[in-house]
Write a protein that binds this DNA or RNA. Structure first.
Length: 274
DNA sequence: TCTTTATGGTGAG
DNA sequence: TCACCCTAAAGAT
């Protein structure tokens, strides 16, 4: 179940295993991709990178494997041909002489030529990547105030990869909480300070989640909560998955709401600027 | 064994 | 906003 940080963590692990090495064998489970096995086997993997929540494995001969895990795909890295014991369906395998990068369950896999990347319907429309070091707070603020996004609801914007790339459903709730902004607002309803807080939170929380493997709560507080014996699922988030629990900031019960099928959590006391 | 849910995304209206 | 696509695990029966 991946958002930007989880995919980038996976990309790092896959890159260590296969980037810069010859892929001795590439396997595709889907019939319509089988003919690419010969095209890619024996080629050098040049780079492995996360593009928002998609993975892009690039080969030296100008071909790329694009994949998107949606809610259920999962990458595993093992010693070469050392398959895990699982009921999941193997969809893609990239082997070299010492490691295998294995993609299970994913249904969205494509092979693209270099020149097709710029026009790809998902990749070409991505907004600034929150996990890209060159993305700045100023750039994100500019995004919030851009005519194209200014009057849309924050709840919709924060999940839109064309607005900012890499955020998902847990980060949405966490960003709104840390910025102390009520979920019903639009950028146009916010003060300049609130916009700045949203931009900082979007960048900081996404990056912290990448560095801590998924923790968006304040790290000092996390240390105290660990001491008190709380488990990861209890201290990991400020509000996400914590409905009915006391807010870590003010003690008010966290509220859960469902908007177009996606869960949203917030503190009615800390985020009451409607 | 059936139904629901999930850290995702698209397209119709 | 909703229906739908996709797969696997959890929950309900």
């Amino acid at each position: 179940m991946p958002e930007g940080p989880e995919i980038k963590i996976a990309a790092d692990e896959i890159a260590t295993a296969i980037a810069g090495r010859v892929a001795s064998e590439v396997f595709f489970a889907f019939d319509h991709l089988k003919h690419y096995q010969d095209t890619l086997s024996g080629q050098t993997v040049s780079t492995v990178e996360a593009r928002a929540k998609a993975m892009l494995v690039s080969f030296a001969n100008g071909y790329n494997i694009y994949s998107h895990n949606q809610l259920y795909g999962i990458w595993l890295v093992r010693d070469a041909y050392d398959y895990p014991d699982t009921n999941r369906q193997l969809r893609l395998a990239i082997h070299n002489s010492h490691k295998s990068a294995l993609l299970y369950s994913a249904s969205d896999i494509e092979v693209l030529r270099d020149y097709e990347l710029d026009t790809h319907p998902f990749l070409s429309k991505l907004g600034p990547n929150l996990l890209d070091d060159t993305t700045t707070v100023e750039q994100v603020i500019e995004r919030f105030t851009h005519k194209r996004f200014y009057r849309r609801r924050l709840t919709s914007l924060l999940l839109d990869q064309q607005f900012l790339a890499g955020m998902g459903n847990y980060l949405r709730s966490e960003v709104l909480f840390v910025a102390r902004v009520h979920p019903s607002l639009r950028p146009a309803d916010c003060t300049a300070q609130q916009i700045a807080e949203l931009a900082r939170a979007a960048l900081n929380l996404t990056r912290q989640s990448y560095q801590t493997r998924g923790i968006t709560n304040d790290l000092e507080l996390v240390g105290q909560l660990k001491q008190a014996g709380l488990t990861r699922s209890d201290y990991r988030f400020w509000v996400f998955n914590r409905d009915g629990e006391p807010c870590y900031n003010c003690g008010t019960q966290i509220i859960k709401d469902t908007l177009s099928g996606r869960r949203l959590y917030f503190c009615p006391t800390c985020q009451q600027n409607m």
